[in-house]
Simulated assay, not measured.
Amino acid sequence: ITYGRYVIVGFFTDEVGPQRWDDYFGVSTPQLSFQAMFNHAAAMRNGDDRKPGGALACFAGGAHADALFDLPDEEIMSRFAKDLLAVFPELEGKLGEGIVRRHRRVVPFWAPGRRNSLPPLRDPLGTIHFAGDYQLDLPSLADAATSGERAAKAVLA
């Protein structure tokens, strides 16, 4: 199983009142230093009841992440902040210090012809039941949790 890399920068924000990104859980940014921005609080936003501040996470994966891995945190934060401000200029002066995380093994993916390894990983090996985010065609944390729960129930049975 091959795992992809990510460089993530999270920014706490300092804004008051509704913002135009409040309804967006994710924004695709393929031409920038990061490929996607996630606003995990979007599911909690409730129009007029919006509390001040927020948090935005910018993700660079694959080759983009590889190019960033050895750069100093300050350089990565600077690039991501500049590009985030290009998308949402109203964040000027409202971005807190970025928090940089480098992850070498995050999301599994399969090279052409390698998906044929999946069926054996889905089947139990005697009393051993496998679980993980690689179990389904589009891996996610939800898939990892579901496969773990399925494996646990099978072991208990």
Rank of each mutant, 00 (worst) to 15 (best):
Q35I: 02
A145S: 10
R150N: 10
P89T: 10
A55H: 11
E74S: 12
K51T: 11
E15W: 14
M77V: 09
S33I: 01
D137W: 13
P89L: 09
A43R: 13
G148N: 08
V7E: 05
A81F: 08
N116C: 07
T146I: 12
R20G: 01
W21Q: 01
L156F: 13
A67H: 00
S117C: 11
L121D: 03
I1F: 08
Q35L: 03
A157M: 13
V9D: 06
R104N: 11
I128Y: 14
D143G: 11
A86G: 12
G113I: 07
S28Y: 12
G54I: 03
P120F: 06
A154I: 06
A131C: 15
N46A: 15
G132F: 04
S117R: 14
V106R: 10
F88T: 07
G54S: 05
N116Y: 07
V16G: 02
L56H: 01
N39Q: 10
A154P: 00
R50L: 08
A67D: 07
G96R: 05
P72W: 03
C58A: 08
M77R: 13
Y3S: 00
L95R: 08
D137I: 14
G47D: 12
Q35K: 08
I1Y: 06
E149D: 11
P108Q: 04
R105F: 15
T29Q: 01
E74A: 14
A144W: 07
A142K: 11
R45T: 07
F80S: 06
K153C: 09
G54F: 03
W110E: 06
D48M: 10
I8R: 15
F109K: 07
G148A: 02
D66E: 15
W110Q: 03
R150M: 09
Q19M: 15
Q135T: 13
A154N: 13
M44P: 01
G4L: 01
A81D: 11
A86F: 07
D22C: 01
D133T: 05
L95S: 05
R20S: 15
F109H: 10
A157K: 14
N116I: 13
Y3I: 01
S117Q: 14
G53W: 01
H64E: 10
T13G: 04
L121G: 07
I1A: 12
R20Y: 07
R114N: 05
Y6W: 12
G93K: 02
P18M: 12
P72C: 00
V87S: 02
G54N: 04
I8N: 15
S33D: 09
K153V: 10
D137F: 13
A157N: 14
G132Y: 01
A63H: 02
G96V: 03
L95V: 08
L141D: 07
F88K: 08
M44I: 05
A144L: 03
L56D: 03
S78M: 06
L91Y: 11
I8H: 04
G93S: 08
A63R: 09
G148E: 01
